[in-house]
Computed example of a mutant assay.
Amino acid sequence: MNASTAWRVPSPAEIPGLSYDALVEHLRLSKVNVGHYQSVVSALQEELAKRSPTNAYRCTKCGHTEYQVGAIRTARSGWSSFFGVETAQYHAIICAHCKYTEFYQGKVPPGQQALDFLFGS
């Protein structure tokens, strides 16, 4: 989101054109600014659910429809690796039949990164 659209509530027609990160940010803002987002919260949630990799899941390798979900966290750069701060998170969707695995990028919250730095990963 750029500075001109950062605080503007999207209209229902604009929601399908938003990036994944913008959808997540607007949902976060909807918890803080309940009154402003009241008319579009359900549309934001529905759009996010449509984009889920597990929505109508079918393994691209064997065609099976059952899956398991996992996650991994890794360090992205030399410094974060040196200090034991895991700054990258990936969600794994694993086929229950053939174990073919797809990874989707996520985010590690800054608070968790701080805890990693203080206590090690």
Rank of each mutant, 00 (worst) to 15 (best):
T60G: 15
T60A: 11
T60S: 14
K61M: 03
K61L: 02
C62I: 04
C62H: 06
C62T: 00
G63K: 01
H64K: 10
H64S: 01
H64V: 00
H64Q: 05
T65V: 14
V69T: 09
V69C: 04
G70L: 11
A71M: 12
A71Y: 13
I72L: 06
I72W: 03
R73T: 15
T74H: 08
A75Y: 12
R76S: 11
R76I: 06
S77I: 07
W79L: 07
W79I: 09
W79A: 11
S81Y: 15
S81F: 14
F82R: 15
F82S: 14
F83A: 10
F83C: 10
F83S: 13
G84V: 10
G84Y: 14
G84E: 08
V85G: 15
V85E: 00
V85R: 01
E86W: 01
E86M: 03
Q89H: 09
Q89S: 09
H91Q: 07
H91L: 12
A92Y: 03
A92L: 14
A92D: 00
A92S: 03
I93T: 02
I93N: 00
I94K: 00
C95N: 05
A96C: 07
K99F: 07
Y100G: 01
Y100H: 07
T101M: 10
T101Y: 09
E102N: 07
F103N: 04
F103C: 03
Y104W: 02
Y104N: 06
Q105I: 15
Q105L: 14
K107C: 06
V108N: 04
P109D: 14
P109V: 15
P109K: 08
P109E: 15
P110H: 04
G111L: 06
Q112F: 08
Q112T: 14
A114T: 07
